[in-house]
Deep mutational scan, measured.
Amino acid sequence: MATADDFKLIRDIHSTGGRRQVFGSREQKPFEDLVDLGWLKRSSVDSRATHYQITERGTSAAL
């Protein structure tokens, strides 16, 4: 179930172009929650960072 923080984060991601790069596993937790909701997808993972991209469902949630 989505929380107020989830909606705040997806709106922030949407307003800044729909993509986010995250460093460190602790910082990934809120983004992984949005992946579980179907609002974000992991577009790539490298040794230092994970890249996320907003989905259509995420765009709808952000509006």
Rank of each mutant, 00 (worst) to 15 (best):
A61G: 02
P30L: 06
H14R: 06
R20W: 08
R11I: 12
T3G: 06
T3Q: 06
G24H: 14
G18R: 02
D5E: 13
I54A: 02
G58P: 00
S15G: 09
R19Q: 13
V22H: 04
R20N: 04
A62T: 03
D33V: 15
I54D: 01
R26C: 15
T16E: 10
L63K: 08
D46L: 06
F23A: 14
D33T: 14
V22S: 04
K8Q: 10
E32F: 04
L9C: 05
D33H: 15
R48F: 14
D6T: 04
T50L: 06
R19L: 11
I54M: 05
D6A: 09
T50F: 08
G58H: 01
E56N: 08
D6K: 07
W39I: 00
L40Q: 00
Q21D: 13
T59M: 12
L63M: 11
T50V: 14
A61Q: 05
I10F: 02
R26K: 15
L40K: 00
L9P: 01
A62C: 06
A2R: 04
R42A: 08
D6R: 06
A49G: 15
G18H: 02
R57P: 06
A61Y: 04
I54H: 01
D6S: 07
L34W: 00
K41R: 12
F23H: 13
K41F: 14
D12G: 05
E56I: 08
D36C: 12
E32D: 11
F31L: 06
R20S: 06
E32S: 07
D12K: 09
A49Y: 12
Q28C: 12
I54Q: 02
W39A: 01
D36M: 13
H14W: 13
S15D: 13
W39Y: 03
T55V: 02
L9A: 03
S43M: 14
V35W: 03
R42W: 04
V22D: 03
T3I: 04
T55D: 02
S60Y: 13
D12L: 12
G38S: 03
S60H: 14
L40C: 03
Q53T: 13
K29R: 11
A61E: 05
S44F: 15
R20I: 14
E27D: 13
S44G: 10
S25I: 11
E56F: 07
G38E: 04
P30W: 05
R42V: 15
G38Y: 03
E27V: 06
S44M: 13
R19E: 13
S44Q: 13
T16M: 08
L40H: 00
R42G: 04
P30V: 07
R20Q: 05
S43F: 12
A4M: 12
L34Y: 01
R20Y: 07
